[in-house]
Design a protein around this nucleic acid. Sequence first.
DNA 1: GAATTGACGTTCT
DNA 2: AAGAACGCCAATT
Length: 109
Amino acid sequence: MKPKDNYYELVFELTRRIPSGRVSTYGAIADYLSLGSARMVGWALNNSMGQDIPAHRVVNRKGELSGRNSFAHPDLMQQRLEKEGVKVEDNKIVDFKTHFWHPEEYDEG
DNA sequence: GAATTGACGTTCT
DNA sequence: AAGAACGCCAATT
């Protein structure tokens, strides 16, 4: 582990805050954590493989399952989302803006 | 160290 | 609205 992995945990922590049945975007997380680039979130999540991080709940700005190719199986990401109640069609989340979740909403109580 | 790649997003055409 | 180009930062080669 390297000291730069510090921001990994920030992404991991926040990703775990995403409630089941909802999804978030790289840009929202990157902006919330002031990473400076949404790519950092994607890279961090790639390192989250093997940990208990629901990375499948994070998609790109258009709601496309851009990261599905990085999972153990390409269809795993979509299956995970559908199992949690998030409909997916053509690798894109249905009613994405409806399921959209913002980091600032995570702890209302 | 330079060049290329990548789970992205914005701007220009 | 759709496509191409640029910007962003880290990791890899």
